[in-house]
Amino acid sequence: MKKLRHLEEHVFRFLMWLSLLVVLGSLMLILGTMLWRGLPSLSLTMLTQIPKGGYYLGEEGGILNAIVGSLCLASGATAFAWLFSLPVAIYLHGYASRSRTAHLIRLAMDVLWGVPSIVYGAFGFIIMLWLGLRASLLGGIIALACLELPIMVRGMDEALGTVPPALREASYALGATRFETTIKVLLRQAVAGLLTAVLLAFGRGIGDAASVLFTAGYTDRLPDSLFRPVASLPLAVFFQLATPFPAVQQRAYAAGLVLTVIVLAVSVMARWLSRHLTRHVVR
């Protein structure tokens, strides 16, 4: 009897190790595959030129249009989402903390987080039709901003939640209003966490393909107007991989590698910031 339960303990411990190996291994496999297949076809021309005639048959050119397009889309969407999520974060922590309303807002944000990105795409598409827009940078920004909004709000919410309540109380005791306390004490204390939230949302936005598929379209030109279609890296990967030419598929791998590097860099930077940008923080 005693032996059996110790055997069980060991068996499950082994299974846990195995599962952890599978999870971490698959992550490494994905990153490894991207490096192994992407690096050989990555070149300076890929990064610095827009597609030339016959590019999709394997001729000269690069994916600069997609790189610049993705940066424009994600920056615009992040700015847009920031405009809406900061007031929500201020409301949550300045006025509604721990109330029923705050719970409801958090629930709404969590639910919004779960909405599939293709649904945001379809939603953005309808809004564009109503506004009389075609597939454009603006349309892509609107759809991506909706996708980024809940990520940013929850990130900011979490960052503001780590500020010790005593600081807030000290500010109230000096006669500051709730708004002044929130702006001058809470936001300043949590600035690193707020930035982390913004960066994480940016990283999510730049990698999403399904929401920009309807709304931003695709083009071989560099973005020049809010009302024209714009290329993006995830769609560059998707479209180039779908062609039957191996030379073009190679470029899809390279585009994927560029996207992975951007996303990982943003994510690592976000985590680094949250630990190191703490000069003004009172502990």
Binding site: T33, G207, D208, A209, F238, L241, A252, T260
Partner: peptide, 14 residues
Amino acid sequence: DVSAGIPSVIFGIW
């Protein structure tokens, strides 16, 4: 946490 942020097209390529 980092793997949660990998774009879905990358999973697609893999």
